[in-house]
Design a protein around this nucleic acid. Structure first.
Length: 807
DNA sequence: AGCACGCCGACT
DNA sequence: GTCGGCGTGCTC
């Protein structure tokens, strides 16, 4: 038998199947979807078996060396899906497959050098190197290259002469967690006899034996046995030595939710509206029919209950369910609802888990120990065999698009998988993307609308405050009178508030009053942000940090001022103006440590603070009963970005954040501070009027030829040399203009909105089109043409077939 | 991506 | 003449 293998070399020349002969002893073992170790040129690599066949076009085939996994990691569906992803996003096949698996399954390769015979003299090599060569671990080749050319050369010639040996080693990044278990190694009837025999000479050991007599289990984790019988390692060991007990290793799962209890919940009674919406979904589940639904429901309209009951129907049919959420670590509440309803059948996959934990959750799915997966974007690749429903909550969230290769959108994958499994795909949002809503209106998706909130409460009234007016009336603070008074009122009443500001740090730029100098990142074309806690200037793009200068580096003036407001400054202001209020600040700076997210959110949920202040990470899915005020400090922060989606994003953020207040018994208020109160996205968010916003924004998109009227493709070129980038970008634009039809609109070459990041200049070219069947071919030719320069000159060409943003 | 092969300039 | 630089092409 011959296996078609996709090898782990994501590069142009190797982006195809390589045929290998399956050796006899593996003939029965190797299956499609497994990873195998193969010789590739002089080295050793892993690859995915994506097909089996009897014959090959090539005569001389190498043999598969070994298997990596005991069972396939990809099923036929996922193998096909990978091809589809590679083709539709222009990525390498191997990258597509790798991205379907947890990070722990990435392979690490190393080349190691060993002495063949310690007696061989290698006088050119220093003592230390020779010791390493003689050791069991050998000498790491990558490490060796750091120790100088002469040494590298001597080693190479020694290899040539056969005095040193090269081994290619492959390791998995993550390991399965194991623990030791002991079991009784003799017939249980004999235990009593043994007990009698040793009880006097070895009372401790007898104690252990008695444990097995008293309990029916014959297998127990060693640690647990030691705890239960208060025995030591030595005691157990002597029993093992006597072959009364047998110790083996067993794989275990790391369970991130191990210590938590989830109260079982039952289905709630649905409202008439919910019933109407769920009916066609249930009918599709029943009839194994694929259809994409868009549930447009205001916040609090009970979308989650629809998801839960649909999943319940799926499980009852013996099928599996995938539920995507934007970023679940932000919503422990969602995990609770799912674990509460479905118990241990739920696997959870999100970025808050460690690599190992994600690996374990993934294996739980693969071994069919989970029926439901709740997770972020990559959970869309859950290795289920029999999917009954795929749900994407908050479908407008930008995190569903992967911003690195393969640049897929989870929504597209969901629909592709839904079609394969003939099951419904449900998209839900209070503020759907224009693309999805347009498709729903056209009948491509089935639209379900939920107008009412389950608790019948009206959506909180939003007040838009014109900050220009505030300024005119002499209020120069960050807070409008309206917001400040309400904040104070909530603090006095013991109710909670949420404040949103989409900028972290203290001030957004640092400026010299005398000469106009603005502190800029030396590596990026962006001004540095002042962080007060560390008294540092930071670049939010490359991480560059610098001491805050006490005098202007240009003119030595001491009149250095801070402009723009970040979350740190707001926190400081709050402490000054309202010392009695306690504030929790949540942004990248306070949540970068693992578990901090949840910690801060829990603290706020337990009402340990009056005010939760944060960047947009606080806008998603939070649900605190005691929050009665939501303030948006700078609603226009996103509005004026040069991106076609900025109005949509603003509308979504304001609507989402507004829905956070007054979800429970208390009713809520929303205050939106802005310098452009007349803008439609702010006005319509205030009125919770998605439909008017949709109509208005659709007109704008049509006028400016953006999605959903046109498709978009973004080509970004970057390199350290500006002229090189411009040159390549010009040529690419040229080729595109030549190859595409008259209808295609090609914008560029232009500098990217941030023209330089990490010392690399960025130029881009945007293609707007309706129907260009040759586009992918042309782009592939472009990539092929620049392939050499991309690996040699550190030129990068990024192609995003459907960019969510062109920033 | 690695790695070998092969072609050209600088040196023993 | 050989060593060592790097450009070119292949890997089942």
């Amino acid at each position: 038998m011959i296996a078609g293998v996709i090898v782990d070399v994501p590069a142009f020349g190797t982006d195809k199947t390589f045929d290998y002969r399956i050796p006899e002893h593996l003939e029965e073992t190797i299956e499609v979807g497994m990873r195998v170790v193969v010789p590739f040129g002089p080295r050793k690599l892993t690859g995915f078996v994506i097909g089996l066949k009897e014959t090959s076009d090539l005569k001389r085939l190498k043999k598969i060396e070994d298997i990596v996994d005991p069972s396939p990691v990809l099923n036929q569906e996922l193998i096909g899906l990978g091809k589809w992803i590679a083709n539709s996003t222009l990525c390498f096949l191997h990258s597509a497959y790798q991205s379907m698996l947890p990070a722990a399954m990435k392979m690490n390769y190393s080349k190691r050098i060993y002495s063949i015979n310690e007696a061989i003299e290698l006088p050119d090599l220093p003592e230390q190197i020779r010791i390493q060569l003689d050791s069991d671990k050998g000498l790491d080749w990558a490490e060796a290259q750091k120790s100088g050319k002469h040494i590298v050369r001597s080693i190479q010639s020694a290899i040539h002469n056969g005095n040193l040996e090269v081994k290619y080693e492959i390791r998995s990044k993550g390991k399965k967690k194991r623990h030791k278990v002991v079991m009784v190694n003799i017939p249980t009837m004999e235990l009593n006899a043994i007990y009698d025999d040793i009880s006097r000479k070895a009372p401790k050991q007898a104690e252990v034996i008695r444990y097995f007599i008293g309990n029916n289990e014959t297998k127990i984790p060693t640690q647990k046995l030691m705890d239960e019988t208060e025995s030591s390692r030595a005691t157990i060991k002597s029993l093992i030595d006597k072959q009364i007990l047998l110790e083996t290793e067993e794989e275990i799962y790391r369970d991130p939710y191990k210590d938590r209890q989830f109260e079982r919940t039952v289905s709630l009674t649905l409202t008439e509206e919910q019933k109407e919406s769920i009916k066609p979904i249930l009918s599709d589940i029943e009839n194994n029919q694929h259809e994409t639904f868009l549930i447009h429901g205001v916040t609090g309209s009970g979308k989650t209950e629809i998801y839960l009951q649909s999943i319940e129907a799926v499980i009852q049919k013996g099928k599996e369910a995938i539920m995507l959420v934007p970023e679940i670590s932000l919503t422990p509440q969602m995990v609770h609802r799912f674990k509460g309803r479905f118990g241990s059948e739920v696997a959870v996959l999100h970025s808050g888990l460690s690599v190992g934990e994600k690996y374990d959750e993934w294996r739980k799915i693969q071994r069919k120990e989970a029926k439901v997966v709740v997770g972020a974007r990559s959970a869309i690749f859950a290795p289920f065999q029999n999917i009954g429903i795929i749900i994407i909550d908050e479908e407008h969230e930008s995190s569903y698009k992967q911003e690195e290769n393969p640049r897929y959108h989870a929504r597209d994958i969901a629909i592709e998988r839904g079609r394969f499994h003939q099951c419904p795909v449900v998209l839900g949002s209070a503020t759907p993307t224009l693309e999805s809503y347009a498709r729903a209106k056209k009948g491509v998706y089935t639209l379900c609308t939920l107008h009412e909130r389950v608790n019948q409460k009206a959506l909180p009234t939003a007040e838009v405050v014109d900050m220009r007016e505030e300024l005119r009336s002499g209020n120069r603070s960050l807070f409008s009178t309206a917001l400040f008074d309400r904040l104070k009122d909530r603090v006095d009443k013991g109710e909670q508030s949420v404040l949103l500001l989409n900028r972290r740090g203290y001030s957004t730029f640092v400026n010299c009053r005398d000469c106009g100098y603005v502190a800029q990142c030396p590596h990026c074309d962006i001004s540095l942000t002042y962080h007060k806690r560390s008294n540092q200037l930071k670049c939010h793009y490359c991480g560059f940090e610098d001491k805050q200068p006490t005098e202007c580096p240009e003119c030595t003036s001491e009149h250095i001022r801070f402009f723009g407001t970040g979350t740190q400054k707001v926190e400081e202001e709050l402490n000054k103006l309202m010392p009695e209020a306690s504030v929790i600040r949540m942004d990248v700076d306070t949540t970068s440590r693992k578990g901090m997210h949840e910690k801060l959110l829990n603290a706020f949920a337990e009402q340990k603070a009056d005010i939760l202040l944060g960047t947009q990470m606080i806008a998603k899915g939070l649900d605190f009963p005691n929050v009665t005020l939501v303030g948006v400090l700078a609603a226009d922060s996103m509005l004026h970005l040069p991106d076609f989606r900025s109005a949509e994003r603003t509308f979504q953020l304001l609507t989402q954040v507004g829905g956070r207040a007054g979800r429970h018994i208390l009713s809520g208020e929303v205050v939106i501070q802005t310098y452009t109160p007349e803008h439609y996205s702010i006005q319509l968010a205030q009125q919770h009027d998605f439909l008017t916003f949709y109509d208005k924004e659709m007109l704008m998109r049509k006028l400016h030829q953006y999605p959903p009227f046109y498709f978009l493709t973004l080509v970004t070129i970057s390199h350290e040399e500006l002229m090189y980038v411009v040159d390549v970008c010009e040529k690419i634009t040229e080729v595109l203009k030549e190859g595409l039809s008259e209808q295609a609109v090609i914008l560029g070459p232009v500098a990217s909105p941030i023209p330089r990041v990490k010392d690399r200049y960025r130029y881009q070219c945007v293609i707007k089109y309706k129907n260009e069947p040759t586009l992918k071919n042309i782009l592939n030719e472009i990539l092929a043409h620049y392939q050499k320069r991309m690996q040699q000159d550190q030129l990068t060409i990024n192609i995003d077939m459907h960019p969510q943003t062109i920033l």
